[in-house]
C-alpha cells in the first residue's frame, strides 16, 4: 500500500516535468544565422536560416526590433513579410566581413562574404506585433 506522502511526491514531480516541458516548448527563442556572398560586385548567394532553439539560451536581450505580426508564432513568415527591415536590423547588429581579391595579369576577381554567426534571439509574440532581441 502506497503512503500519501509518496503519491504526492510522485504527482509533484510529474506536474513539474509537465510544466517545465510546456515552458521549454513554448519558449520563444530562435537561432538565426545569415550569410551572403558577393562576387565581382554582383550578389551571388544569400542564406537566412531560422530555427527554434532546442536548448535554453543564455544572456540578456540586447537591441530589440519590433515588427507588426499577423502570423501567430511563425517567425519565418514574420521575417519573410518584413525581410527588408529585418536584414537592415541584422546589419546594424554587426556582420563579419571577409574579402578576398586577386588580380592575375591585370584581370580582377573579388569575393566578399558577410556573415552573421548563429545567434540566439528572444522573440515575444503579442497580438499585433512581435519583439525580436538577440541574447548576449
Amino acid at each position: 500500500m502506497r503512503s500519501r506522502d509518496g503519491n504526492s511526491n510522485f504527482s509533484l514531480r510529474l506536474c513539474s516535468i509537465l510544466i517545465f516541458n510546456s515552458l521549454a516548448l513554448n519558449a520563444s527563442e530562435f537561432l538565426i544565422s545569415y550569410k551572403y556572398i558577393v562576387q565581382n560586385s554582383v550578389i551571388y548567394n544569400e542564406t537566412l536560416l531560422i530555427s527554434r532553439a532546442m536548448t535554453k539560451c543564455e544572456g540578456t536581450p540586447q537591441r530589440e526590433l519590433i515588427l507588426q505580426n499577423r502570423n501567430g508564432e511563425d517567425l519565418k513568415a514574420l521575417v519573410f513579410e518584413n525581410s527588408q527591415e529585418f536584414i537592415e536590423y541584422i546589419h546594424e547588429l554587426g556582420l563579419h566581413v571577409e574579402h578576398k581579391e586577386s588580380t592575375v595579369n591585370l584581370q580582377n576577381f573579388s569575393t566578399t562574404i558577410l556573415t552573421l554567426k548563429t545567434t540566439c534571439f528572444k522573440v515575444d509574440f503579442n497580438d499585433n506585433f512581435a519583439t525580436i532581441a538577440p541574447l548576449k
Binding site: 546589419h91 546594424e92 554587426g94 563579419h96 566581413v97 571577409e98 578576398k100 592575375v104 595579369n105
Partner: peptide
C-alpha cells in the same frame, strides 16, 4: 604571370 592577392577580415558593427 603577375598576381596580386588582397585579403581583409573584420567584424563591423553599427554602420549606417
Amino acid at each position: 604571370r603577375s598576381t596580386i592577392r588582397t585579403y581583409v577580415q573584420a567584424m563591423v558593427r553599427n554602420a549606417n
